[in-house]
Protein backbone atom coordinates (compact mmCIF):
# COMPACT_ATOMS: atom_id res chain seq x y z
CA UNK A 1 0.00 0.00 0.00
CA UNK A 2 1.89 2.95 1.31
CA UNK A 3 5.22 1.51 0.29
CA UNK A 4 4.20 0.00 -3.03
CA UNK A 5 4.52 3.15 -5.09
CA UNK A 6 7.57 4.49 -3.30
CA UNK A 7 11.00 4.46 -4.78
CA UNK A 8 13.12 2.15 -2.63
CA UNK A 9 16.27 4.16 -3.28
CA UNK A 10 14.57 7.33 -2.11
CA UNK A 11 13.23 5.56 0.98
CA UNK A 12 16.80 4.69 1.97
CA UNK A 13 18.15 8.01 0.76
CA UNK A 14 20.81 6.52 -1.48
CA UNK A 15 21.56 7.13 -5.20
CA UNK A 16 20.57 4.48 -7.72
CA UNK A 17 24.20 3.49 -8.22
CA UNK A 18 24.87 3.06 -4.50
CA UNK A 19 27.08 0.15 -3.50
CA UNK A 20 25.70 -2.69 -1.39
CA UNK A 21 27.76 -1.26 1.47
CA UNK A 22 26.12 2.13 1.20
CA UNK A 23 22.68 0.54 1.10
CA UNK A 24 23.43 -1.48 4.19
CA UNK A 25 24.78 1.58 6.03
CA UNK A 26 21.75 3.71 5.12
CA UNK A 27 19.39 0.94 6.20
CA UNK A 28 21.09 0.31 9.55
CA UNK A 29 21.05 3.98 10.39
CA UNK A 30 17.40 4.52 9.44
CA UNK A 31 16.33 1.30 11.16
CA UNK A 32 17.94 2.44 14.42
CA UNK A 33 16.14 5.78 14.20
CA UNK A 34 12.72 4.40 13.37
CA UNK A 35 12.47 1.07 15.15
CA UNK A 36 9.09 0.98 16.96
CA UNK A 37 10.77 0.24 20.28
CA UNK A 38 13.13 3.18 19.96
CA UNK A 39 10.96 5.80 18.29
CA UNK A 40 7.55 6.19 19.92
CA UNK A 41 6.17 8.42 17.18
CA UNK A 42 3.24 6.59 15.52
CA UNK A 43 4.54 7.65 12.09
CA UNK A 44 7.87 5.92 12.73
CA UNK A 45 6.24 2.52 12.45
CA UNK A 46 5.29 3.17 8.85
CA UNK A 47 8.73 4.54 8.05
CA UNK A 48 10.32 1.47 9.60
CA UNK A 49 8.17 -0.80 7.48
CA UNK A 50 9.05 1.09 4.30
CA UNK A 51 12.74 1.08 5.16
CA UNK A 52 12.73 -2.64 5.84
CA UNK A 53 10.86 -3.40 2.67
CA UNK A 54 13.25 -1.28 0.62
CA UNK A 55 16.23 -2.99 2.23
CA UNK A 56 14.77 -6.45 1.68
CA UNK A 57 14.65 -5.74 -2.01
CA UNK A 58 17.85 -3.76 -2.49
CA UNK A 59 20.12 -5.82 -0.24
CA UNK A 60 19.87 -8.85 -2.49
CA UNK A 61 21.77 -8.07 -5.73
CA UNK A 62 19.49 -10.30 -7.74
CA UNK A 63 16.24 -8.78 -6.49
CA UNK A 64 17.80 -5.36 -6.84
CA UNK A 65 18.57 -6.02 -10.52
CA UNK A 66 14.98 -7.04 -11.09
CA UNK A 67 13.72 -3.97 -9.26
CA UNK A 68 15.96 -1.74 -11.37
CA UNK A 69 14.71 -3.40 -14.54
CA UNK A 70 11.00 -3.67 -13.82
CA UNK A 71 10.28 -1.04 -11.18
CA UNK A 72 7.81 -1.41 -8.30
CA UNK A 73 5.87 -4.17 -10.07
CA UNK A 74 8.91 -6.43 -10.36
CA UNK A 75 7.34 -9.12 -8.21
CA UNK A 76 4.67 -9.71 -10.85
CA UNK A 77 7.18 -10.25 -13.59
CA UNK A 78 7.96 -13.91 -14.30
CA UNK A 79 11.59 -15.00 -14.28
CA UNK A 80 13.51 -14.57 -17.51
CA UNK A 81 11.43 -11.78 -19.05
CA UNK A 82 13.27 -9.15 -21.04
CA UNK A 83 12.79 -5.67 -19.52
CA UNK A 84 12.19 -4.03 -22.89
CA UNK A 85 9.47 -6.51 -23.82
CA UNK A 86 7.85 -6.05 -20.43
CA UNK A 87 7.79 -2.27 -20.75
CA UNK A 88 6.18 -2.40 -24.17
CA UNK A 89 3.60 -4.93 -22.99
CA UNK A 90 2.71 -2.77 -19.98
CA UNK A 91 2.32 0.37 -22.06
CA UNK A 92 -0.10 -1.48 -24.30
CA UNK A 93 -2.08 -3.10 -21.53
CA UNK A 94 -3.54 0.22 -20.37
CA UNK A 95 -6.80 -0.32 -18.48
CA UNK A 96 -6.02 -3.89 -17.47
CA UNK A 97 -2.97 -2.91 -15.45
CA UNK A 98 -4.84 -1.68 -12.40
CA UNK A 99 -6.83 -4.86 -11.91
CA UNK A 100 -3.78 -7.04 -12.32
CA UNK A 101 -1.83 -5.06 -9.76
CA UNK A 102 -4.60 -5.56 -7.25
CA UNK A 103 -5.10 -9.27 -7.58
CA UNK A 104 -1.59 -10.23 -8.54
CA UNK A 105 0.29 -8.81 -5.59
CA UNK A 106 -0.89 -11.33 -3.05
CA UNK A 107 -0.23 -14.38 -5.14
CA UNK A 108 3.04 -13.32 -6.67
CA UNK A 109 4.35 -11.53 -3.62
CA UNK A 110 4.18 -14.52 -1.35
CA UNK A 111 6.18 -17.12 -3.13
CA UNK A 112 8.02 -15.41 -5.90
CA UNK A 113 11.29 -16.89 -4.80
CA UNK A 114 12.89 -13.72 -3.43
CA UNK A 115 14.19 -14.09 0.06
CA UNK A 116 12.44 -15.79 2.94
CA UNK A 117 8.87 -15.15 3.97
CA UNK A 118 8.36 -11.90 2.12
CA UNK A 119 4.74 -11.10 1.53
CA UNK A 120 3.93 -7.65 0.23
CA UNK A 121 0.43 -7.72 1.65
CA UNK A 122 1.59 -8.57 5.13
CA UNK A 123 1.51 -5.26 6.93
CA UNK A 124 4.52 -6.15 8.99
CA UNK A 125 6.31 -8.04 6.29
CA UNK A 126 9.08 -5.49 6.52
CA UNK A 127 9.32 -5.91 10.24
CA UNK A 128 9.56 -9.62 10.51
CA UNK A 129 10.32 -10.82 7.03
CA UNK A 130 13.97 -9.91 6.98
CA UNK A 131 17.14 -11.26 8.46
CA UNK A 132 16.99 -12.90 11.82
CA UNK A 133 13.24 -12.69 11.88
CA UNK A 134 12.46 -16.21 10.89
CA UNK A 135 10.47 -18.43 13.15
CA UNK A 136 8.63 -15.80 15.18
CA UNK A 137 4.91 -16.24 15.24
CA UNK A 138 2.52 -13.51 16.25
CA UNK A 139 4.24 -10.60 17.99
CA UNK A 140 2.18 -7.93 19.76
CA UNK A 141 2.67 -4.33 18.66
CA UNK A 142 4.82 -1.72 20.38
CA UNK A 143 3.49 1.07 22.54
CA UNK A 144 3.51 4.50 20.95
CA UNK A 145 3.38 8.06 22.17
CA UNK A 146 1.87 11.22 20.77
CA UNK A 147 1.65 14.70 22.23
CA UNK A 148 -1.54 16.64 22.61
CA UNK A 149 -1.45 20.34 23.47
CA UNK A 150 -4.23 21.79 25.58
CA UNK A 151 -5.06 25.24 26.83
CA UNK A 152 -5.39 25.77 30.57
CA UNK A 153 -9.14 26.07 30.05
CA UNK A 154 -9.27 22.70 28.24
CA UNK A 155 -7.37 21.08 31.09
CA UNK A 156 -9.77 22.62 33.59
CA UNK A 157 -13.02 21.67 31.90
CA UNK A 158 -11.94 18.58 29.97
CA UNK A 159 -12.29 18.45 26.21
CA UNK A 160 -12.57 16.26 23.15
CA UNK A 161 -9.93 15.89 20.50
CA UNK A 162 -9.82 14.16 17.15
CA UNK A 163 -6.37 12.77 16.50
CA UNK A 164 -5.16 11.79 13.08
CA UNK A 165 -2.55 9.05 13.18
CA UNK A 166 -0.44 7.72 10.37
CA UNK A 167 0.37 4.04 10.47
CA UNK A 168 1.17 1.30 7.97
CA UNK A 169 -2.58 0.70 7.66
CA UNK A 170 -3.07 4.27 6.45
CA UNK A 171 -4.28 7.29 8.36
CA UNK A 172 -7.03 6.95 10.88
CA UNK A 173 -8.82 9.34 13.16
CA UNK A 174 -9.69 8.62 16.74
CA UNK A 175 -11.89 10.65 19.02
CA UNK A 176 -10.42 11.10 22.45
CA UNK A 177 -12.18 12.44 25.51
CA UNK A 178 -9.71 14.24 27.73
CA UNK A 179 -10.98 14.29 31.30
CA UNK A 180 -11.09 17.44 33.39
CA UNK A 181 -8.05 18.01 35.55
CA UNK A 182 -5.20 16.54 33.51
CA UNK A 183 -1.78 17.95 34.31
CA UNK A 184 1.19 18.89 32.17
CA UNK A 185 3.20 15.80 31.29
CA UNK A 186 0.47 13.36 32.25
CA UNK A 187 0.03 10.31 30.05
CA UNK A 188 -3.38 9.16 28.87
CA UNK A 189 -3.46 5.54 27.83
CA UNK A 190 -5.48 4.55 24.79
CA UNK A 191 -5.52 0.78 24.94
CA UNK A 192 -4.99 -0.99 21.64
CA UNK A 193 -4.32 2.19 19.62
CA UNK A 194 -0.54 1.72 19.37
CA UNK A 195 1.64 -0.17 16.93
CA UNK A 196 0.03 -3.14 15.25
CA UNK A 197 0.93 -6.69 16.05
CA UNK A 198 1.93 -9.23 13.43
CA UNK A 199 -0.17 -12.22 12.46
CA UNK A 200 -3.21 -11.12 14.41
CA UNK A 201 -1.37 -10.43 17.67
CA UNK A 202 -2.85 -7.58 19.69
CA UNK A 203 -1.67 -4.02 19.01
CA UNK A 204 0.24 -1.97 21.56
CA UNK A 205 -1.14 1.02 23.42
CA UNK A 206 -1.00 4.64 22.44
CA UNK A 207 -0.03 7.07 25.17
CA UNK A 208 -1.11 10.66 24.76
CA UNK A 209 1.24 13.00 26.54
CA UNK A 210 -0.54 16.10 27.70
CA UNK A 211 1.16 19.42 27.09
CA UNK A 212 -0.48 22.46 28.56
CA UNK A 213 0.24 25.51 26.47
CA UNK A 214 1.64 28.58 28.21
CA UNK A 215 -1.11 31.03 29.07
CA UNK A 216 -0.95 34.80 29.28
CA UNK A 217 -2.82 34.98 32.55
CA UNK A 218 -1.81 31.85 34.44
CA UNK A 219 1.21 29.85 35.32
CA UNK A 220 0.61 26.20 36.19
CA UNK A 221 2.48 24.13 38.73
CA UNK A 222 0.90 20.72 38.77
CA UNK A 223 -2.70 21.56 39.55
CA UNK A 224 -1.93 24.86 41.24
CA UNK A 225 -2.67 28.02 39.31
CA UNK A 226 -0.52 31.08 39.82
CA UNK A 227 -1.71 34.50 38.80
CA UNK A 228 -0.19 37.90 39.14
CA UNK A 229 -2.21 40.29 41.27
CA UNK A 230 -1.50 43.87 40.29
CA UNK A 231 -2.27 46.40 42.98
CA UNK A 232 -2.02 50.14 43.31
CA UNK A 233 -0.06 51.34 46.39
CA UNK A 234 -3.24 52.50 48.11
CA UNK A 235 -5.08 49.23 47.38
CA UNK A 236 -2.15 47.34 48.85
CA UNK A 237 -1.96 49.57 51.89
CA UNK A 238 -5.66 49.86 52.64
CA UNK A 239 -6.90 46.47 51.48
CA UNK A 240 -9.51 45.86 48.80
CA UNK A 241 -11.58 43.26 47.04
CA UNK A 242 -10.60 42.33 43.49
CA UNK A 243 -12.11 40.10 40.80
CA UNK A 244 -9.53 37.56 39.60
CA UNK A 245 -10.03 35.67 36.33
CA UNK A 246 -9.78 31.88 36.66
CA UNK A 247 -10.58 29.16 34.10
CA UNK A 248 -13.91 28.74 35.88
CA UNK A 249 -14.73 32.44 35.66
CA UNK A 250 -14.07 35.38 37.93
CA UNK A 251 -13.68 34.94 41.65
CA UNK A 252 -13.67 37.67 44.28
CA UNK A 253 -10.46 37.91 46.20
CA UNK A 254 -10.17 40.08 49.26
CA UNK A 255 -6.74 41.64 49.64
CA UNK A 256 -5.96 42.37 53.28
CA UNK A 257 -4.64 45.78 54.29
CA UNK A 258 -0.86 45.99 54.42
CA UNK A 259 -0.10 43.67 51.52
CA UNK A 260 3.39 44.04 50.08
CA UNK A 261 4.70 42.83 46.70
CA UNK A 262 5.48 39.13 46.69
CA UNK A 263 2.80 38.20 49.20
CA UNK A 264 0.88 35.20 47.97
CA UNK A 265 -2.83 34.96 48.61
CA UNK A 266 -4.14 31.46 48.40
CA UNK A 267 -7.60 30.37 47.42
CA UNK A 268 -8.06 26.77 48.31
CA UNK A 269 -9.47 24.47 45.67
CA UNK A 270 -9.60 27.15 42.96
CA UNK A 271 -6.87 25.50 40.86
CA UNK A 272 -7.36 22.66 38.41
CA UNK A 273 -9.80 19.95 39.49
CA UNK A 274 -8.47 16.55 40.48
CA UNK A 275 -10.50 13.52 39.47
CA UNK A 276 -8.85 11.55 42.27
CA UNK A 277 -8.51 13.81 45.26
CA UNK A 278 -8.02 17.40 46.27
CA UNK A 279 -8.15 20.02 43.56
CA UNK A 280 -5.27 22.44 43.16
CA UNK A 281 -5.15 25.91 44.69
CA UNK A 282 -5.08 29.34 43.17
CA UNK A 283 -2.19 31.53 44.24
CA UNK A 284 -2.36 35.25 43.56
CA UNK A 285 0.95 37.02 44.04
CA UNK A 286 0.73 40.68 44.88
CA UNK A 287 2.64 43.08 42.70
CA UNK A 288 2.43 46.75 43.49
CA UNK A 289 2.40 49.04 40.48
CA UNK A 290 2.84 52.81 40.49
CA UNK A 291 1.76 55.22 37.76
CA UNK A 292 4.71 55.78 35.42
CA UNK A 293 3.70 59.39 34.89
CA UNK A 294 1.69 60.56 37.88
CA UNK A 295 -0.69 63.47 37.48
CA UNK A 296 0.00 66.71 39.28
CA UNK A 297 -2.46 65.78 42.01
CA UNK A 298 -1.01 62.30 42.47
CA UNK A 299 2.52 63.63 42.68
CA UNK A 300 1.44 66.14 45.27
CA UNK A 301 -0.22 63.46 47.40
CA UNK A 302 2.76 61.13 47.15
CA UNK A 303 5.05 63.99 48.23
CA UNK A 304 2.85 64.64 51.21
CA UNK A 305 2.88 60.98 52.08
CA UNK A 306 6.67 60.91 51.78
CA UNK A 307 6.94 63.86 54.14
CA UNK A 308 4.57 62.42 56.71
CA UNK A 309 5.39 58.71 56.69
CA UNK A 310 8.06 57.15 58.86
CA UNK A 311 7.83 53.84 57.08
CA UNK A 312 11.24 52.52 56.00
CA UNK A 313 10.96 49.41 53.79
CA UNK A 314 14.70 48.72 54.13
CA UNK A 315 14.83 48.63 57.88
CA UNK A 316 15.40 45.12 59.16
CA UNK A 317 13.38 44.03 62.11
Amino acid sequence: MAGADQDFYRVLGVPRNASQDEIQRAYRKLARENHPDVNKDPAAEERFKDISEAYNVLSDPQTRRRYDAFGPDFRQVPEGVDPETWRRARAGAGAGAGARAGSGAGAAGGRGGFGPDIDLDDLLGGLFGGRGGRGWGAVPGADQEAEVELTVEDAYHGTRRTLTLTSPAGTRSIDVTIPAGVTDGQRIRLAGQGGRGSDGAPPGDLYLIVRIAPHRGYRLEGRDLHVELRLSPWEAALGTSIAVATPAGEVKLSVPAGTSSGRRLRMRGRGLPNPRGRPGDLFAEARIMVPATPTEAERELFERLAAVSEFDPRRRR
Partner: peptide
Protein backbone atom coordinates in the same frame (compact mmCIF):
# COMPACT_ATOMS: atom_id res chain seq x y z
CA UNK B 1 8.63 -10.47 25.22
CA UNK B 2 7.18 -8.74 22.16
CA UNK B 3 9.83 -6.05 22.46
CA UNK B 4 12.58 -8.68 22.67
CA UNK B 5 11.21 -10.28 19.52
CA UNK B 6 10.97 -7.00 17.64
CA UNK B 7 14.47 -5.93 18.61
CA UNK B 8 15.88 -9.27 17.58
CA UNK B 9 14.04 -9.20 14.27
CA UNK B 10 14.78 -5.55 13.53
CA UNK B 11 18.47 -5.45 14.41
CA UNK B 12 19.58 -9.07 14.43
Amino acid sequence: VARIQRLRAGFA
